[in-house]
Computed example of a mutant assay.
Amino acid sequence: MAAMQKQDMRWEHIVAKMKNQTPTVMHCERYIKWSMPDTGPSPPPIEATGVTSFTGFVSKGAVVYVSSTKETCSVAWLLAWDRPDKYYFIPPCPNKVYVACGPKSVIEKMSDEEIQKKLDDAPSAEVAAIDPITKATVHAKLEDTIGIEMIPIDTALDACFGVAV
């Protein structure tokens, strides 16, 4: 039984590397955990022009980061991911990522259900977006790290939040 629990935890393991390309600190305003709602802390702040890593146990979730300065309007970035357990589905379900960015007021209005629907409809595990109003940008990629015997041992989520100049 312990071996089975360990294996289940491995499928939930996500290692996120998030890069902030803005001149201000970004804070996690919302963390949605669809697959394991009662686990782990929220993702940490990302320093201005910094990188942070976050290890979580949510295979399907979303995070909204916000940043605002006196010189610019409040901006938000949405990153949602789904890393299904490929061994439970035939044919296997692909990894998916959904991203959005723009005025904080617009991103905040998105319900958890709306975000989940957009994630479920997402076409791939690598996406990018740019908002024409705020010039906010986001790029994300979700991929499995393959171990011995071609079994996924980790899932890496790389995201980059910025503002086009």
Rank of each mutant, 00 (worst) to 15 (best):
D121S: 15
D131L: 01
A136S: 14
K33E: 03
G61T: 05
K117C: 02
P41I: 01
A2Y: 02
A156E: 12
N95P: 07
E143M: 13
G56S: 09
T24Q: 05
T134K: 05
F161V: 07
A128S: 13
A100N: 09
Y31L: 00
M18P: 05
K104D: 14
D120H: 14
P23A: 00
E47C: 10
F57A: 13
A100M: 07
G162Y: 15
A100C: 08
S42R: 02
I130P: 00
M150P: 00
L142D: 02
I151W: 04
K17L: 07
T69E: 09
K135C: 10
K17D: 06
A48Y: 09
I133H: 12
V163F: 06
S68K: 08
I107P: 01
K86R: 03
E29Q: 15
S53T: 14
Y31W: 15
M18E: 09
D121R: 07
W77S: 01
M110S: 08
A76Y: 08
L119G: 01
A125V: 02
F57Y: 10
A62H: 12
P41E: 06
I148A: 09
D131Q: 04
P43M: 13
A122D: 03
P84V: 03
P152C: 08
D144Y: 10
L79P: 05
L142P: 05
P45S: 11
T69L: 04
C28D: 13
T72M: 05
K109A: 15
K117N: 12
I146S: 02
V51Q: 15
G61H: 03
P41Q: 14
N20G: 12
A62S: 05
L78M: 08
L79T: 05
A159Q: 13
K104S: 11
D38C: 08
S67F: 09
V58L: 04
S59L: 08
E143P: 00
I107Q: 07
A136V: 11
V51P: 03
E47V: 09
P37V: 11
M4Y: 11
T134M: 06
K96V: 07
A125F: 13
M9D: 04
V138S: 08
D112S: 11
M1H: 08
E29L: 13
D85N: 11
I14P: 07
L157N: 14
W77K: 00
D154W: 10
D158V: 15
Q116C: 13
K17V: 14
S124K: 12
P132Y: 07
V165L: 10
V138F: 09
A164D: 13
T137G: 08
Y98F: 14
P91K: 05
S124P: 05
E47D: 11
V138Y: 12
V106A: 08
D144E: 12
G162D: 15
R30K: 08
F57H: 11
I32A: 01
P84N: 02
D144N: 13
S111P: 06
E29R: 04
Y88M: 06
I14C: 05
I148M: 08
I32S: 01
W34P: 00
V58G: 00
A136W: 10
C73A: 14
I130A: 10
